[in-house]
Amino acid sequence: MYALYDFINFHFIPGLVLGSIYALGAIGVTLTFGILRFANFAHGESMTLGAYIAWTLITLTGWHPIAVLPLAMLITAVVAVGIDRGFYKPFRAAPTIMLVIASFGMMLMVRSAIQFSWGVQLKSLQSGIQQPLILFDAIRISPKHVVIVGAALALMVIIHLILSRTKMGKAMRAMSDSPELAKLTGIDTEQVIRNTWIIGGALAAAAGVLLAYDTHVETMMGFQVLLPVFAAAILGGIGKPYGAMIGGLIIGLAEELATYPWIGDTPLVSPGYKAGVAFVLMIGILLWRPSGIMRGRTF
């Protein structure tokens, strides 16, 4: 039985936490890919930026990370829209590879700006040690993990409601289906693009804040999770927000479960190579099912 509890405490729960964070990041990546047709390399920096904004807000107010989350999301969304206006909009009619390269440049610029403004030292959103909740004498759940998964799920429900119930959400899905037809239909495509950046930026910020809440604030944090986030978006199917949610959870769980000692006493994959799991999964998906779980777009 000890092994089972270990499995839950050290692999399954952390996998779920990581998966929820990846899922939030992947929704933004998949929406921008679906609607603007380019892989946004700067998405990880939006996550980092959100975490730093939250850190500043917490330092100023002393509030709980979840309390400052909405404001951090809002500010990051405004920055994302501003970046689109200034740097991506001029490339709207250009081949998408230009946008990919532009986003790569933006990634470096935003990261440098963050390092310049906040410094490169590690920061924490919350100090002190929390007592874990203990279930059945053996399952230990850290309260912050409950908060992270809960907040991520709540945000996913909100995104679902926006995409399925509101006129703008439906227009976003329509444009993801066919930008050409969206234009012919009279859909205000610039407005759709703006909303895509708002939602993508806000969710990236949320992912960054939750990741920082789980670990710490660091200037490379967004870049480090960019690969698993891309893997989650591809696994779910490019342009499919629900696929991104499922893909995120699968990638997060896979990374953590791969370090479980499935065979013998040593971890199947050494924790140091955990990030490689997402990479292997991504290559596997691209080889065997490039359209992903939800039959997204292929290139």
Binding site: K170, R173, S176, E180, L181
Partner: peptide, 10 residues
């Protein structure tokens, strides 16, 4: 248009 005239996923 002749082709691609509906939003298939909607």
């Amino acid at each position: 248009p002749q082709t691609n005239n509906i939003f298939a996923n909607l």
